[in-house]
Amino acid sequence: MKIQYKYMLVFLVLIFVWMGLCWLAGYPLAVIPPILVVVYESLQKPMYNGKMAFKQGLVLTISATVGTLLYFAIDSWILATLLDMILMLILLRIVGIRVPAVYAFPLLPFVFPDHIVAMLPLGSLITCVFLFTSVLAYKKMEMKRSRKVMQM
């Protein structure tokens, strides 16, 4: 598959809009790296639909929540990680989608300050809703346009 460089620009515009909105709302947690990776990869996909967008947002939000809960509940980081990884494996099997970023998410609490960690589950939900809805809207528009070109 050829790399579509125009999506790099689309990605930048989308993330800057999101950062601007968060700044206006005074919300500090705009940039969550694993979500941005999935957004970037979704833009590169030739096919994208609402079901995929929903599943991506769902597994990412659940993984943020599980990661945060286990981080606060279990003192041993090693044990917490082991449980995180097993739970993520089960989660992706149940939902039936491959999103590698889901394995990265539960490790974020180890590198973020505690007050940010507590915001991760809700923050992920809000970020996912905005970004994946936008990606979906963009891809739908793109598919519509290419269909029109083909008809001409």
């Binding site: 970023a101 394995y103 990265a104 180890f110």
Partner: peptide
């Protein structure tokens, strides 16, 4: 040293 942890390494290992 928690700066050693790179969450994305987990995603890359699985992928």
């Amino acid at each position: 040293d928690h700066e050693i942890i790179l969450p994305e390494v987990a995603a890359m290992a699985i992928a």
